[in-house]
């Protein structure tokens, strides 16, 4: 194999990496849009809303993502929705990450002292205003390290969309290997690209977690 074939392979991998990042970002955004109402339902006073919220979180955290992707891929046309496979896969990843994001957000809300809610009420903030200006920004900030972890999880999980026909980085590598039979070159190569993206993401969350870890005594027997 000459150099130009490797270059073509690299260019294809780069395109696949773009698809991987794009579908992960779409999934995170879809997930966040679903996570907000699910989290609100989980913390609401209504029993039915809580029940529905708990069911959502329990079900979508309980089903393997691969099975969920296959189900959604076939379910959408079954109910009359013809989506391109990229959109169907992004939706599948999104509904799954929403369950985890909703729990992260709930964790963020739980650490806000009750006094702040009361203070907002005393200043005659409406329910919506206190959510929008006081509670949500703090909850998101508190949930940020967990959210970065979730992004890493989704980036890794996005490799499964290769199964439902999306040409992400994993799928592209499979296609190249099918032609040039060099699995030892391409699979480790994409592994390191995933790793590089994830370590970059982790760098941001470790900066905040590192601050918490500092000052913790070392284990010594």
């Amino acid at each position: 194999m000459d150099h130009s074939a490797y270059l073509t392979g690299l260019r294809l991998i780069a395109t696949g990496a773009g698809v991987t990042v794009a579908i992960s970002l779409c999934a995170i955004a879809i997930g966040f849009a679903i996570a907000l109402p699910v989290c609100a339902a989980n913390m609401s006073g209504s029993r039915i809303a809580r029940l529905l919220g708990h069911f959502y979180v329990s079900f979508f955290r309980g089903v393997p993502l691969l099975v969920l992707l296959l189900l959604i891929y076939y379910l959408l046309p079954f109910v009359g929705l013809e989506l391109p496979s990229f959109a169907a896969a992004a939706l599948g990843l999104g509904v799954c990450t929403a369950a985890y994001q909703a729990e992260n957000l709930r964790g963020g809300f739980l650490i806000i002292p009750a006094g702040q809610r009361e203070a907002a009420l005393a200043f005659s903030y409406s329910r919506y205003q206190s959510w929008r200006h006081i509670l949500l920004p703090q909850a998101i900030r508190a949930a940020m390290p967990m959210m970065v972890n979730e992004m890493i999880a989704i980036l890794k999980a996005s490799s499964l969309v290769s199964v439902v026909g999306v040409a992400d980085m994993t799928r592209v590598a499979q296609n190249i290997v099918a032609r040039d039979v060099q699995p030892l070159l391409w699979y480790p190569a994409i592994a390191f690209i995933y790793l590089a993206i994830n370590l970059t993401l982790a760098h941001f969350s470790h900066r905040s977690v590192g601050r918490l870890r500092r000052g913790r005594p070392e284990f010594r027997l």
Binding site: I152, K156, A157, S158, S159, L160, S162, T170, A173, Q174, V177, P183, L184, Y187, P188, I190, A191, F192, Y194, L195, N198, L199, A202
Partner: peptide, 17 residues
């Protein structure tokens, strides 16, 4: 390494490479 890469890719490396 093992937490930063997808399980699917690890399996491909192990099984195919």
């Amino acid at each position: 390494f093992f937490r930063g890469t997808p399980l699917l890719v690890q399996l491909f490396v192990l099984y195919y490479a």
